[in-house]
Nucleic acid binder design. Structure first.
Length: 115
DNA sequence: TTTCTCACA
DNA sequence: TGTGAGAA
């Protein structure tokens, strides 16, 4: 299908679909006129991309996960790469939460009355 | 209708 | 991360 149809079927703008392709999240062929042609399963892929972005993942991380993400939304088949990626992401979040807790404590301490 | 690029939040 | 506009 052409990009316009994929856009209609996913509710994602054509502009954004091109952007996803540019980021390596979406694959397409080109026919003789230079237009992108997408397979039917691109619809599923786009849904997966949207779900993962909504979870706060970067396109870079998503790009690594997608090749081993089979199946329909929102479940993903957990191949080892994906598991490792998620673990790493969680550890990073924990770090940030810790430092935020510290900052919060410090700031709250400046309020003599209450916080 | 699609393509791309530049610029911007 | 995501958009708008202009030109082909």
């Amino acid at each position: 299908m052409l990009i316009g149809e994929l856009s209609r079927r996913t509710g994602v703008s054509q502009r954004l679909l091109r952007y996803y392709e540019e980021q390596g999240l979406l694959v397409s062929r080109r026919d003789s006129n230079g237009y992108r042609t997408f397979d039917d399963d691109a619809v599923t892929t786009v849904r997966q991309i949207r779900a993962l972005l909504a979870a706060g993942l970067s396109t870079q991380v998503i790009g690594k996960m997608l090749p081993c993400a089979t199946g329909e939304l929102p479940e993903l088949d957990m191949c080892p790469t994906v598991v490792a990626e998620i673990r790493r992401e969680l550890a990073e979040m924990d770090d940030r939460i810790d430092t935020l807790r510290l900052r919060r404590g410090t700031l709250a301490g400046y309020l003599t009355v209450d916080a």
